[in-house]
Write a protein that binds this DNA or RNA. Sequence first.
DNA 1: AATGAATGAGGTTTCATTCAT
DNA 2: TATGAATGAAACCTCATTCAT
Lengths: 210, 210, 210, 210
Amino acid sequence: MGIKERREREKSERRESILKAAIRVYDKEGYHAITMEKIAEAAELSRATLYLYFKTKDEIFIHAILSYSDFFRERLEKVYAGCAETKDDLLKNLWFTFIEFYEKDRPSFNVTLYFHQSEMIRNLPENLRIMLDHSGTRIYESLSKIMAYGIGQGVFRESNPKTLAEVVWTSFLGIIHLENSKHAMSRKPHLAVTWQLALEMLSKGILKSH
Amino acid sequence: MGIKERREREKSERRESILKAAIRVYDKEGYHAITMEKIAEAAELSRATLYLYFKTKDEIFIHAILSYSDFFRERLEKVYAGCAETKDDLLKNLWFTFIEFYEKDRPSFNVTLYFHQSEMIRNLPENLRIMLDHSGTRIYESLSKIMAYGIGQGVFRESNPKTLAEVVWTSFLGIIHLENSKHAMSRKPHLAVTWQLALEMLSKGILKSH
Amino acid sequence: MGIKERREREKSERRESILKAAIRVYDKEGYHAITMEKIAEAAELSRATLYLYFKTKDEIFIHAILSYSDFFRERLEKVYAGCAETKDDLLKNLWFTFIEFYEKDRPSFNVTLYFHQSEMIRNLPENLRIMLDHSGTRIYESLSKIMAYGIGQGVFRESNPKTLAEVVWTSFLGIIHLENSKHAMSRKPHLAVTWQLALEMLSKGILKSH
Amino acid sequence: MGIKERREREKSERRESILKAAIRVYDKEGYHAITMEKIAEAAELSRATLYLYFKTKDEIFIHAILSYSDFFRERLEKVYAGCAETKDDLLKNLWFTFIEFYEKDRPSFNVTLYFHQSEMIRNLPENLRIMLDHSGTRIYESLSKIMAYGIGQGVFRESNPKTLAEVVWTSFLGIIHLENSKHAMSRKPHLAVTWQLALEMLSKGILKSH
DNA sequence: AATGAATGAGGTTTCATTCAT
DNA sequence: TATGAATGAAACCTCATTCAT
């Protein structure tokens, strides 16, 4: 039935708009300042209505993260699919994919980062924690596949692909943590420069002689 | 008079014990779960007494962090002082200093990391934010000095010392973020392994041919 | 739509009932003893609900006062409107209006008196202080108009109407202060007698002809 | 013994200085803002020391008031003693005594006024309440004597002396309440003018001959 | 489906007062 | 005598969540 489908679609759109509203509020005021009231306001709905779409406040954010993470994973899979063509530039390519992805939707990226902290995770109910864990794990799986490919092709040094994935990805995230911190301190950001050097150092190593 | 000095000492010890108690609570339950009540309990004092030593809850943590950071900086200065003897192993030496420092008092390290998030920073009153900022800045200054030395000695590749400091330090922190997250997810940690590989990759580079 | 109007009306009634509850609590226990808890109890609501209607505790009282003062001013305006008929009895008429008004709702009168103390005023946030000031000022304006009329008509002695208003009104209030004090001391009140004499003394002096 | 007496005297002086400190704090910040801490600071003593001289915070103020009231009563008794010489100017003389007394030490006057409110009285423990009541009563006794004299001498109209005392005294106090309120509202005071008119109005009415 | 109204459960902070030295 | 240190008792306010319409 067309009607039923329309209903579904509308419902789905409404959910989506709530997620966007939540992210918007986070971006403007930070997690602490977020209240259901503010999300509702941003979504132009009433507080009570939010509960028709999500059971709890945390659920809203987890869903926002999941959808965002899925999107990221798809992007990584594309990188993997294009590995053959990239070859020597695989690391560089991956790194730029990170950057591009971050730049496209910083608020969502930051929420995701924020919820992946132990502090947040610990306070999540079991079911949400598991969902979050899965989404994180899948990212690493995709990354690991790429690493494994690079190692197999002799592009990357011999090493455990999973661990290598962690090293590269946490290097990237570490820089973002730092820059966010700088931003909050009202200090000048150096994102591009730091990323550039990080990539270089990861690529060729910090030590001059090897 | 000895009495006055004893008083001073006791007061200082009491402050210290409150800071420790706060860290302990954080370690066990996380920031969200912390209440003055719980800190008081852990310190075996009444809630009101805490306010004799610190004006607000955040102040407690900031002071804990400052004292911890100072300690770290001293450690870094020692590394700097011993640069000449280290020479080629400078990066390795630094990295192990990080690890050693982290291992010695994880809870304090984690609190520090936690408060350096934008989320926390944003919600700090001006004065505490500035204190926190200073302490962070000084760490980077010490690190930068070491980097500058390494670059000057031809041990490290030509690069901006400050940026290099950021790259190395955020690599380290990124891994800790990851491991904390794993811990919260009840997953198996690989700290040592990841650190090891990260050091290797930073040292020699990820790419096989250069 | 009728529904919307009903909602509005109910909301307004609920506000009113909270104001009444607050006054009731004040009357029974005095300002010091008042807590949001007690007001809530008296209004048969939860503490949190009160905050849906008023932002702070003081706001509750200020609104009670404002509505009461407005009412008083209307009453004074009626006296003014009827000045012509009253003529020689203007002062007496006014004085009985005071009494009647006081008698009708002592608790509200006393709250108003209480908040007009410097002590209370000083501790009010700017916005509430201004509201309170306005309401007080308007009372004096109405009174002054009446005085001006009386002076113009040659009923009252030549004098500054505003100042005359202050003299008469503070005479009345002074007596109430005294009686309240007696009441609190569990001593016998003499309100009627004192008022009577005060009026007499004021009359013989204020009236031009004797 | 001289030593014992010196001790007594010092103790008494110390008490006095605490009372003064309390009044000073009240004058600067108002009753709400007063804490034992602030009084102690103003008296250059420690908080605990205050309790060596006064059992509770309220006791401090009550004693300040009592001493001030006694002083006032003495002043009134002098007026009474000089009644014969004053004769026709008795009311005027009395009124100026009020003013002079008020002007000499406004803070003390205001504290006294403040504590004579029902709100304060109600929250006083039995014993202090009684002390306060006595002091107030004695003032009225003195005033009544003066009134009775005036009536007896045919200067004042025939009336109940006690009631007349109340009328005159509350007229005066009412004006002070008003002026304090104005002050707190940052509005221009008219104390002198209002007093002047009040006296005039009271005079022409109170005096038998006109 | 949408919402206005209501609430329970806390958390931070302040202060008068006590007590051991 | 003087005081530093400690505390119990409150009070205000916020917010996620539920419910009746």
